Amino acid sequence: MDSHGQNEQRVVWTVVGTDIGPLLLAATQDGLVNVVFHATDAVREKTLDRLASRLGAEPVEAPDSPLLAEAIRQFAAYFAGTRRDFDLPLDWSLISGFNRQVLRELASGVPYGSVVGYGDLAGQVGQPRAAQAVGVAMGSNPLPVVVPCHRVVESDGGIGGFGGGLETKRKLLALEGVLPEPLF
């Protein structure tokens, strides 16, 4: 056996059904690396191609992978309302610089059931005028739900944008008790 493959990044993925539709979860040895909303066949194909080119390894479908098992359990508990915080190792390799800084602050500083304004989050990372850049960081979040970009809203009370769609953002905020449950 050649030792060439020793350092190769292993990427495993699976799709889990949730209250907000199918989510694609992908992980490396370092942790959960990607969560993707609306994981239809087309979205899944595009995501796996992107992961292969960004991480240098062909993602392997492995629903019973130990790397994913805990993430699957925690997502189920979160959507069941029995878990408020994700406690998973995260692989931040799909994001860097300011965007990573903002998302790490969001992950550690904005707890379940609360929201933060784009400008306030910008202030928390020492860039009080960077509200728009914070919006861009939210849009580039490779780990939505776990890194809770759904908790970032407009200062005037508007819900703000969301990569997973506003309906998804509303459902997540309702699940966390921030918004009333949607009527339909």
Score class of each variant (00 low, 15 high):
Asp2Thr: 05
Asp2Val: 05
Asp2Pro: 01
His4Gly: 07
His4Pro: 03
Gly5Tyr: 05
Gly5Trp: 02
Asn7Met: 12
Arg10Thr: 14
Arg10Glu: 15
Val11Leu: 06
Trp13Thr: 07
Trp13Lys: 06
Trp13Leu: 10
Val16Leu: 12
Val16Asp: 06
Gly17Met: 11
Gly17Cys: 06
Gly17Tyr: 08
Gly17Asn: 11
Asp19Val: 11
Leu24Lys: 00
Ala26Ile: 06
Thr28Trp: 05
Thr28Ala: 12
Gly31Thr: 05
Val33Asp: 00
Asn34Leu: 14
Val35Thr: 04
Val35Asp: 00
Val36Gly: 09
His38Lys: 14
Ala39Ser: 08
Ala42Cys: 00
Val43Glu: 10
Glu45Tyr: 06
Glu45Asp: 15
Lys46Glu: 13
Thr47Gly: 05
Thr47Ile: 13
Thr47Leu: 14
Arg50Trp: 12
Leu51Val: 07
Leu51Phe: 08
Ala52Ile: 01
Ala52Cys: 02
Ser53Lys: 14
Ala57Phe: 04
Glu58Thr: 15
Pro59Ile: 03
Pro59Asn: 01
Glu61Ile: 01
Glu61Met: 01
Ala62His: 10
Pro63Val: 04
Asp64Ile: 03
Pro66Lys: 09
Leu67Asp: 09
Leu68Asp: 02
Ala69Met: 04
Glu70Gln: 15
Ala71His: 11
Ala71Ile: 08
Ile72Phe: 01
Arg73Trp: 05
Phe75Asp: 01
Phe75Thr: 04
Ala77Pro: 03
Tyr78Met: 05
Tyr78Leu: 10
Ala80Lys: 10
Ala80Phe: 07
Gly81Cys: 09
Arg83Asp: 09
Asp87Arg: 14
Asp91Leu: 14
Asp91Cys: 15
Trp92Arg: 07
Phe98Val: 10
Asn99Ala: 15
Asn99Tyr: 14
Gln101Asp: 13
Glu105Ile: 09
Ala107Cys: 10
Pro111Ala: 13
Pro111Ser: 10
Gly113Asn: 08
Val116Asp: 07
Tyr118Phe: 15
Tyr118Asn: 09
Ala122Pro: 09
Ala122Asn: 12
Gln124Asn: 11
Val125Trp: 02
Val125His: 08
Gly126Lys: 03
Pro128Gly: 06
Arg129Ile: 00
Ala131Val: 11
Ala131Phe: 14
Gln132Leu: 15
Val136Lys: 15
Val136Ala: 12
Val136Tyr: 14
Ser140Met: 13
Leu143Pro: 07
Leu143Ala: 07
Pro144Lys: 04
Val145His: 00
Val145Glu: 04
Val146Met: 04
Pro148Lys: 08
Pro148Ile: 08
Cys149Tyr: 00
His150Thr: 02
Val152His: 10
Val152Glu: 14
Ser155Cys: 08
Gly157Tyr: 00
Gly157Glu: 01
Gly157Trp: 02
Gly157Asn: 07
Gly158Thr: 06
Gly158Glu: 11
Gly161Thr: 07
Gly161Lys: 05
Gly163Lys: 04
Glu167Thr: 13
Thr168Tyr: 03
Lys169Gly: 01
Lys169Leu: 01
Arg170Asp: 03
Lys171Tyr: 00
Leu173Asp: 03
Leu173Tyr: 02
Glu176Asp: 10
Pro182Lys: 02
Pro182Ile: 01
Leu183Arg: 10
Phe184Ser: 09
Phe184Met: 04
Phe184Ala: 15
Phe184Gly: 15
Phe184Asn: 12
Phe184Ile: 08
